[in-house]
């Protein structure tokens, strides 16, 4: 247990870590936007009564919720290029896998949130002469989003954690850079400890904020 810790070698590569952090944030932003917006579309489709909309949306959600996201990323990276005529970059494969996976999970959040709104709200909007879509946009969604906020921030945190999986297809993000630094300097302890801490320091405030949000909403409702 008398290992000599030496963090200097890690901090010599701060620029590489920053480069990785930019990659992580880029992937996170893409997946957050794509995942949550596609999730809304699919959540609404699942809520639709029409079978042509409802059924494919359900199949999509079940498939992506019930397969591991790493399998999806590797599928998009290694298998999809066989079917399409263009190259799939590591960023594309990772973004596709994580976005579609998050879309499936957030679709369920949207559906649950919309269903939690009392039927009286629908009836009142109809009484005011709104169409179904108008009622959804103006009355139901604004109320539902408020209730869904903690679950959606949780999803965002999950997406951030999932972004590390992109290192499996050699996309340049924090963990991938950590791997390089560790193999260059033979200092896995310091490097991986720093990487873990970076994630913790970044995500923990978000987690606390989600807790606080949950408590406030629990009081408000």
């Amino acid at each position: 247990m008398n290992y000599q810790w030496n963090f200097a070698a890690v901090f010599e590569h701060t620029d590489a870590l920053l480069h990785g952090a930019v990659g992580t944030l880029r992937l996170f932003a893409i997946c957050l936007v794509l995942g949550l917006s596609l999730g809304l579309v699919i959540g609404l489709a699942r809520y639709a009564r029409h079978r042509l909309l409802n059924w494919p949306a359900t199949a999509f959600v079940e498939f992506f919720r019930n397969t591991p996201v790493l399998v999806q990323i590797l599928w998009f990276y290694f298998a999809l290029p066989m079917l399409v005529p263009f190259e799939i970059s590591p960023l594309m494969a990772a973004a596709l896998g994580i976005s579609l996976n998050s879309a499936a999970f957030s679709a369920e959040i949207y559906r649950g949130g919309i269903q939690s709104i009392e039927p009286g709200q629908w009836e009142a909007s109809r009484a005011l002469g709104m169409t179904g879509l108008q009622a959804m946009r103006r009355i139901i969604l604004p109320q539902a989003i408020r209730r869904m906020l903690p679950a959606l921030t949780n999803r965002a945190i999950e997406i951030f954690k999932m972004s590390t999986l992109a290192s499996a297809v050699a996309y340049v993000e924090l963990l991938q850079q950590g791997k390089l630094i560790a193999s260059l300097n033979f200092n896995p302890i310091e490097t991986y400890s720093v990487i873990a801490l970076v994630f913790f320091v970044f995500l923990f405030p978000l987690v606390r904020a989600t807790y606080a949000l949950e408590r406030r909403l629990a009081k408000g409702d």
């Binding site: 247990m1 290992y3 896995p188 991986y192 873990a196 987690v207």
Partner: peptide, 24 residues
Amino acid sequence: IEFFRTTPPLVQLFWFFFALPVLI
């Protein structure tokens, strides 16, 4: 609890696989 819930599992796995053996 908080640490293991907020760090990515892949980072944890790398830590236990590559870093811990050096330490112990």
